[in-house]
């Protein structure tokens, strides 16, 4: 069970366990991480799970994720990600994500 760190909008660090196979958005909403809404349930429709990758390695976003970031998310940066499109694996242990402002 990888531990993922989310930096909440007020700077609070939240270390959250993610179940293998679930999305990081699901792990964050279960733990009530501030600022992660996941309104569309993980379909890359709403960008309410937008985070910045602070440290750790992730596969590059797929076309769906990249396009939704470009056209929906606010305050985008090169390190923007939709956490609903990232599946938890052991390899993500120690990943740090900062919740993006909306």
């Amino acid at each position: 069970m990888p531990m993922i760190t989310f930096v909440e909008p007020d700077g609070t660090l939240r270390e959250v366990p993610a179940l293998a196979g679930e999305s990081l958005m699901a792990a964050a909403t279960r733990a009530n991480v501030a600022g992660i809404i996941g309104e569309c349930g993980g379909s890359a429709m709403c960008a309410t799970c937008h985070c910045y990758l602070v440290s750790g390695d992730l596969p590059a976003p797929g076309p769906l994720e990249a396009e939704t970031i470009e056209f929906v998310a606010q305050n985008t940066r090169p390190e923007s990600r939709l956490t609903c499109q990232i599946t938890a694996t052991e390899a993500l242990e120690g990943l740090v994500l900062q919740v993006a402002p909306r």
Binding site: R30, N32, G41, G42
Partner: peptide
């Protein structure tokens, strides 16, 4: 089931 939000919310 995937909760809409945590019980704490």
């Amino acid at each position: 089931p995937q909760p809409l939000r945590a019980a704490q919310a």
